[in-house]
Design a binder for these strands. Structure first.
Length: 493
RNA sequence: CGGGGCGUAGCGCAGUCUGGUAGCGCGUCUGCCUUGGGCGCAGAAGGUCGUCGGUUCGAAUCCGGCCGCCCCGACCA
């Protein structure tokens, strides 16, 4: 008799496949979409490429914002806000650079009930270098006005052909830092300082290991002298650019005459930087840690760190449990833990277990009459899905410990995954075999032509040239021409 | 924008080939029951079959246009 036939009569309640997520193995991108939908993070809207960020998703963004904003303030930056609409002529000013943006830009052609004349139209910001420089030009007179260190939290719009929730939407939320400095050295220092901030945020808060490095000529921001990025590996082994920091040189200063008078009384163009991360990070977070049961979020950014589930057969049984649960929640809250008591009477505990796993609550406390009789509760961990029984009094301390441990473990796990899927590749055969297999460290002759061949023939693109990879000369995998050092290639989002 | 797939109840799908009263599972609502891994029973509500047009006595079904979603490319944070 086969296993399928000998279902015992008291078989545990049948699993309903309707309720399960597709697995990452089966279909990674369907899994991703489903996690977002089932965890109630975001919806597609009727405007193609635009999303509705739901409270559960927005709460993650708020946590990210809070942490990043603190880091920006700690490095001397101030927030400001610049307009959504940018005179089209501003973009024309930098046609040479921002021509690259043109296909992605939405233009306002009508306003006030009539068509706007050519030359008086607006674009919806795809990024704000131009309009911010317009202000900087007014703000900067003297070297005494420098540096200017500004950040803005805003929405931007880039028309996308293939939108994907959080990763690539036509409208998205981000922060863009914009700074002016008196020297090239200072601007470079700032560019790298903010890249470090992003690295620290990604690793210490998102528990997502990243590679810091420099973008190639063809991958850099239009208008920048140099672009640096942090690159992360998702669970499908594809690379995701998680943040960028640009050294803009004097390119925008020259377009907008952003000048200062030096100590020597000479007029000089300012040196500038810009840097940003976006709601894309939410997508990165999902694809780095989540599993087939749903969302997994590192405790430092999790909207819900502990959920308390009340169990009991009758209202008489549940009453005292509920009371205890709320007291415990108050203690946890006092200790700085984001906690929720689920005392919804209309849903059973099994349902709630599955629900909070889907939603990514880091820890779950199960509390029933049997536990309380023994002065215990059950504590379940989301990432490892392990359970333990603890004394009621030790709950706060144990939750703190586990949250801290989970934060560390998630990072280590992601790091190990990346290490297992990073390869030095030296031949075309290896490249063929490993093209889908994560980060490939390869020699490349440095020409855009060869870079293009890597992309067209193998689907891999340059991610960045890592700072912490020793650069030793070698031979380009494709052409055999000399290379100055290895660079990260991968299939990328 | 090119290639492929799909659009039927809130969600997942069958029905389309071969035209003839709109179906299933989950969810929702009501009542009872239940609560330590998505409980059970009974009843109910809910759909202009993406949209516009054509063929036909009759279209979810056949034909055409358009829109949207997913996958693969080109583009991108």
């Amino acid at each position: 008799m086969s296993d399928a036939q000998k279902q015992p009569q008291n078989a545990p309640k049948k699993q309903n496949d309707n309720l399960k997520l597709p697995t990452r193995e089966q279909d990674f991108s369907k899994w991703y979409i489903e996690v977002i939908s089932r965890a109630k993070l975001a919806d597609n809207s009727d405007v193609r490429g635009s999303m509705v960020i739901r409270p559960n998703g927005y709460a993650i963004w708020e946590n990210m914002q809070r942490v990043l904003d603190g880091m920006f303030k700690d490095t001397g930056h101030q927030n400001a806000y610049f307009p959504l609409l940018i005179p089209e002529s501003y973009l024309a000013k930098e046609a040479k650079h921002v021509a690259d943006f043109a296909p992605q830009v939405a233009v306002v052609t009508h306003a006030g009930g009539k068509a706007l004349p050519e030359g008086e139209r607006y674009v919806i910001r795809p990024t704000s270098e131009t309009i911010i420089n317009r202000s900087f030009t007014n703000w900067v007179q003297s070297y005494r006005d420098l540096p200017i260190l500004i950040n803005q939290w805003a929405n931007v719009m880039r028309w996308e052909m293939r939108p994907r929730l959080f990763l690539r939407t036509t409208e998205f939320l981000w922060q863009e830092g914009h700074t002016c400095h008196a020297s090239e050295a200072e601007a470079t220092e700032e560019t790298l300082r903010m890249l470090d901030v992003y690295e620290r945020f990604a690793e210490d808060y998102m528990a997502m290991p990243v590679i810091k490095g420099q973008k190639t000529e063809s991958e850099k921001f239009p208008g920048a002298v140099n672009t640096y990025s942090i690159e992360a590996m998702m669970q499908d082994k594809k690379a995701l650019q998680a943040g960028t920091s640009h050294m803009l040189g004097q390119n925008f200063a020259k377009m907008f005459d952003t000048m200062y008078q030096s100590k020597e009384g000479k007029k000089e163009y300012v040196w500038q930087t810009s840097w940003g991360v976006s709601t894309r990070l939410i997508g990165a977070l999902i694809m780095t840690h989540s599993d087939d049961a749903g969302l997994v979020v590192p405790p430092k950014l999790a909207p819900l760190q502990v959920v308390i589930i009340i169990i009991g057969k009758t209202p008489e049984e549940r009453g005292p449990v509920r009371e205890k649960a709320h007291a415990m929640a108050a203690d946890l809250k006092k200790a700085g833990v984001r906690v929720l008591v689920d005392d919804d009477e209309t849903k059973g505990p099994g349902f709630k277990y599955a629900e909070y796993e889907l939603r990514g609550a880091c820890l779950r406390v199960d509390m029933g009459p049997k536990d309380l009789a023994k002065n215990e509760v059950t504590l379940a961990r989301r990432d490892t899905r392990s359970k333990e029984t603890i004394q009621v009094e030790s709950t706060v301390a144990r939750c703190h410990e586990l949250l801290e441990q989970m934060q560390k473990d998630l990072f280590e796990k992601a790091k190990a995954f990346r290490a297992a899927n990073t390869h030095e590749v030296n031949t075309v055969e290896e490249l063929k075999a490993k093209a889908d297999d994560g980060f490939l460290l390869m020699h490349w002759d440095g020409t855009p032509e060869t870079e293009k061949r890597f992309k067209e023939e193998f689907g891999v693109t340059t991610r960045n040239r890592p700072f912490d990879l020793k650069q030793e000369p070698g031979k380009c995998v494709l052409t055999g021409n000399p290379s100055t050092g290895r660079i990260v290639f991968a299939k990328a989002y």
